[in-house]
Structure formats: structure tokens, C-alpha cells
Design a protein around this nucleic acid. Structure first.
Lengths: 207, 207
DNA sequence: TCGTGTGAATGACTTCACAGCC
DNA sequence: GGCTGTGAAGTCATTCACACGA
């Protein structure tokens, strides 16, 4: 049940390519084209796309409009969801200003920081609030997602606060494992993990 | 040949736990303990650790010092590698100030930005240089890794520049697929992919 | 001929089952 | 009893092989 995660991680890449092709005036796209651009093999792309339910036509491939639509539906890009971000450091600011999220159905609608010096500052049109305002902000924004960009040491507190305020999902950029009720959807972004993969590949190459 | 990627992505998590346990005075650690902390199953952890070559002892588990050492070796944490970062926006600054990389064998040793207004600024002790200085910076720092935190539109240029300057690996935070010679090790961090996974899980939960 | 759809085969990763040790 | 080590079984993902359609 549900789409396998490896497939899920490739669909956004197909989506981007679909938009690019659309942009350059194409009406159809084949798995071969997508595969070439991503250095994958066509059959893998075809199997992935089968998960979305789209059906293509021999020779021509898939209709671009249809592909874009079906990916938007599968990835839930059109159903705009609000998020509250906790921890407005450089990373938090970077995410707040990141233009690509809206396309993915996310808008950051509230900012929280425990540093009194930051409270009241405005980033990208949003005023930074104190942790005490979390519930008010949740009501105001009707956010369902919490984003944690605090230092590791305060990430669990941030998580507890967000869960207490009624968040359904947490997108965690702090390099620790959070303990959360298992009703909460969690996605971790851990730079050190990514770096370690790079490290190991580099080590392998040199040997 | 080489450690499977799923395992590779879990090893850094084990490493962190090993350090924490060491910190709190433990001398040994078992797979069960690690597994519980990460909500994994012990046998998976054991198989992963087997990839590093470490051998444990029944009842006691693994010797912590040995585990830490063997993970550092496998993940190449002790062989300090220099990196040059291109694109000193909020994300670039966040990475430059991120304290956890040194532990993973990475130090950001040079900063490049094409914005004349930024050139000369100092971030975390590093002076921002212009793209024209890339080769000089490479010689000075003896960097092997290039980090790209530019907007998508200039990421390919940044990559070409880094490759031209002799970088061996690229850690790419821009949301596009770079075309690179296949001698270059590449690791992409794509926030939209991670977000899409979150989206889909949330969608699934609600249904 | 090129590209899709389907089901089967391969391969990779995870999990199980059992043996041995402290 | 708790924990590791090993090989076998099982599951999931990828790849192949074939049939069909434009």
C-alpha cells in the first residue's frame, strides 16, 4: 500500500523534467527521454510511472499535460499546505526564502524563534514570533506541518512544542533522532548522512 | 564491492549513538540498544555492522571504542578533507557555520560568490572570493570537494568551474541535475524530494 | 522501428532460524 | 537469558523478455 519510497524519490525528478519539456513546447514525453536526462534506464521510469496510474501510448509516450497532472496529484502538490518553521537561523532563513516549495504544495506561513533578539524581525514578509505564540500561530495559519531548523540541542523541545500545538507532520533538519508519537509523520534531512555517502564514494574511488 | 547504500546511510546514525553512549560512560554497546534508539530491528543493525568488519562478543556486544574507530575508518571521518563552497547565500552560510561537519572529516576552507557586494565579507573566519579566484583558492586550500549552494540557474556554471579547477567530488544543494564527467563523485541534496516524501506520507495518513 | 504493458526473472536488501558463547 | 555469527529464506525493487500498437 502506498508507493515504494525509491519510486517516490524519483517522481519529483520526473516532474521537474516534465515541466521543462512543457516549457520548451513539447506535448508528449517518453520514458526514454526522461531516463536519458536522469541517467536512469527507461524501464525503471516506466515502472515508476505505472505507480501513478497513467497510461501512455506506444510510439508517442505520455501526454505531458496528463503526466504533469497525475504527478501533481500523486505528490499532493496542488493541495497547498501551511507550515510553521521553528529556529530562524541561516538554514531557517534559507528555507523561508526558497522559491521551490510553493510548487510542491508547501508554504511557510509562520516563524518561531526563542531568541528574543530575533523576535519581531521580518523575513520574507513573516514576523518572527516567540515559542509562547505557537498555538496562536497555528490557529492563524492553520498549519499542518512543522519545520525544525534549530540546533540539535533544542530540536526535541521544538518537536514537543509543535506536536503539542497540533502539527501532523514534522520535517526535521536538526541532526538528531526525534522521539514522537507514531501518529506524527516525520521526515529527517540529515546533512551528515549525505556527506558520509559522499565521503565513502570518494574513498572508494581513490583506492 | 563497496558497502550498500542503505547500510551506508545508517552507519552515521550508529556513529552518533556510539558517541552518545561513550559520553555517558558506557564501554560496550549492543545492536539491541542501537536498534531501539533508532526504531530499527537488532538484526539489521548487526548485518550493517558486519560490513565494517567489526566483531562483537556475545552478551556484551561491541566494544564502544572499537566501534567508534571502525565507523570513523569506514566513513572516512578522520581523514580531514577540505571543501570550497560556491554560493554564499543563507544556505551557504548555514553550511559554513554548521558545527557537525568537522566530525565527519570535512572542513569548508574557501568561499566563492559571484555577487560583488559579497566579495570580501568574512563568514566564520573565511573571506568570500570571486569566481576568478577559484584556482588560487583551490591551490591554497588543497580542496578536493566542491559544495554548490547557488540558485539553480547558476549551479551548472558553478559545477563546471569547480570541475575545471580540479575538484574530485561535488555536493550539490541546488535543485537541478548537474551534467558532469563521470570521474566526478556527485551527491545531490534535494529538499523538494524530501518534501515530496513528507507530502505523500501525510496524504496517505489522512486517507 | 520505437515505445508501451505485462508477467517473469534476476538481484539487492532485509528478516528469519539456528548454533555458539558468556 | 541475552547477544553475536552464519547461512538460508523471504521480501522488495530492478531488470529482462515478449507481445502489441502507432
Amino acid at each position: 500500500m502506498g508507493i515504494p519510497e525509491p519510486t517516490l524519490r524519483r517522481l519529483p525528478l520526473y516532474y521537474r523534467i516534465a515541466l521543462e519539456e512543457k516549457e520548451s513546447g513539447e506535448e508528449n514525453i517518453s520514458c526514454t527521454v526522461i531516463a536519458n536526462k536522469l541517467e536512469l534506464i527507461p524501464i525503471l521510469v516506466r515502472k515508476d510511472l505505472q505507480q501513478t496510474g497513467i497510461i501512455g501510448r506506444p510510439k508517442t509516450g505520455y501526454i505531458l499535460d496528463e503526466l504533469i497532472q497525475v504527478l501533481e496529484k500523486t505528490l499532493d502538490y496542488k493541495n497547498n499546505k501551511k507550515a510553521i518553521l521553528v529556529g530562524v537561523g541561516n538554514l531557517g532563513k534559507a528555507l523561508t526564502n526558497y522559491p521551490g516549495f510553493k510548487q510542491c504544495g508547501l508554504s511557510i506561513a509562520g516563524l518561531i524563534d526563542s531568541d528574543e533578539k530575533k523576535v519581531g524581525d521580518v523575513i520574507n514578509g513573516l514576523t518572527i514570533c516567540t515559542p509562547a505564540d505557537i498555538k496562536k500561530e497555528m490557529r492563524r495559519t492553520r498549519a499542518r506541518i512543522g519545520i525544525i531548523t534549530t540546533p540539535a540541542s533544542s530540536a526535541q523541545d521544538a518537536a514537543d512544542m509543535l506536536v503539542g500545538a497540533g502539527v501532523e507532520a514534522i520535517w526535521n533538519f536538526a541532526p538528531i533522532r526525534l522521539s514522537l508519537p507514531d501518529t506524527i509523520v516525520i521526515e529527517n534531512v540529515n546533512f551528515s548522512v549525505s556527506l558520509s555517502v559522499l565521503n565513502s564514494r570518494l574513498l572508494l574511488k581513490v583506492k
